[in-house]
């Protein structure tokens, strides 16, 4: 979680300095979800993600340097500089890929789960999505299809209440209830406090236990705060949008603050935590320097990889 937070804090400055020419959707505030869920996965389990991909990528063990290189459009990035922030991939840790079209990764994750079952591999696929994506038709279709085929699939809805700048209250009927929807499709469903690592990981573990036992797909909804604006590393409080999830309230329930308190309770000292933070920041800055010194793709590379050879 610390790596996720520090990495994006450092990347903010790169964006402001106009060094980062990729559309970015920062994960700041939502770290406990990615890390909480991935902490319950085996190395062989697969993860698919969204436009807000950095956190899931790092939580599954994706390479930091290749991520930063990708954000800076360098040829040694995760997608050799061709994808940018929204297209993270690290197959060596079974991070299958992230794709920004809302809801699009959900049936893809079902397909990855389908292959696990088809070839009797025994792994689980996880598909992350936001509350906005969870409103796409293909997601409701996938609930039914995945249930029909009894797929080993965990779908995680990170509900930060915002779809770009549209609040959940503007987007849903008054009686909309995802718990009832999941029940209607016959899917086990749990709701977690997405700011709280322990709550997320406990509930993910419970659902994963059922999935691994052959119980078919399940849905985990995590209530979180998106600290920053939709697609810039800036606060959007001044636009007057954040009437309920004010900055004050977000900081009060911030995932890193809760985690820090947990660590102290478990016996870590402030000095130890500070050392860890500094070591993490050094690691991130090293990655940024490495990326800055890395080459851009050559012009010819525009024409490669259209097809797999």
């Amino acid at each position: 979680m610390l790596l996720l937070r520090v990495a994006e804090e450092e990347l903010v400055q790169l964006y402001l300095d106009e060094k980062l020419f990729s559309m970015v959707h920062f994960y700041v505030g939502q770290e406990a979800v990615g890390v909480g869920v991935c902490s319950q996965l085996n190395p062989d389990d697969k993860v698919l993600s969204t436009h807000r991909s950095h956190g899931h990528y790092l939580a599954k063990g994706g390479d930091l340097k290749r991520m930063v290189c990708e954000l800076l459009g360098r040829s040694n990035g995760a997608a050799r500089g061709k994808g940018g922030s929204m297209h993270m991939i690290d197959k060596s840790v079974n991070f299958v890929g992230s794709t920004p079209l809302l809801g699009s990764a959900v049936p893809l994750a079902a397909g990855v789960a389908f292959e696990e079952k088809y070839n009797k591999k025994g792994g689980v696929a996880v598909g992350f999505m936001g509350d906005g994506a969870s409103e796409e038709g293909v997601v409701y279709e996938t609930y039914n299809l995945a249930a029909l085929y009894e797929l080993p699939l965990l779908l995680v809805i990170e509900n930060n209440t915002w779809s770009v700048n549209s609040n959940i209250n503007e987007r849903r009927g008054k009686k909309y209830d995802i718990a009832t929807i999941a029940k209607g499709f016959g899917l086990p469903y749990l709701r977690a406090d997405g700011n709280d690592f322990n709550d997320v990981s406990t509930k993910a573990a419970e659902l994963l236990k059922g999935i691994r036992a052959g119980g078919g797909p399940a849905v985990l909804e995590c209530l979180v705060y998106r600290h920053m604006a939709h697609s810039t590393p800036l606060m959007d409080d001044k636009q007057g949008l954040r009437r309920e999830d004010t900055l004050e309230r977000r900081l009060e329930r911030d995932s890193m603050k809760l985690m820090r308190a947990e660590l102290v309770k478990a016996g870590s000292t402030e000095a130890e935590i500070k050392d860890l933070e500094e070591a993490t920041r050094r690691e991130v800055r090293e990655a940024i320097e490495f990326a800055k010194a890395s080459p851009y793709p050559q012009q010819e590379e525009m024409f490669t990889d259209v097809f797999y050879e």
């Binding site: 893809l108 292959e115 293909v138």
Partner: peptide, 12 residues
């Protein structure tokens, strides 16, 4: 969904 599932399984 069925097309997406097929694409995902091809990726896998």
């Amino acid at each position: 969904a069925l097309t997406g599932l097929a694409v995902g399984s091809a990726i896998a």
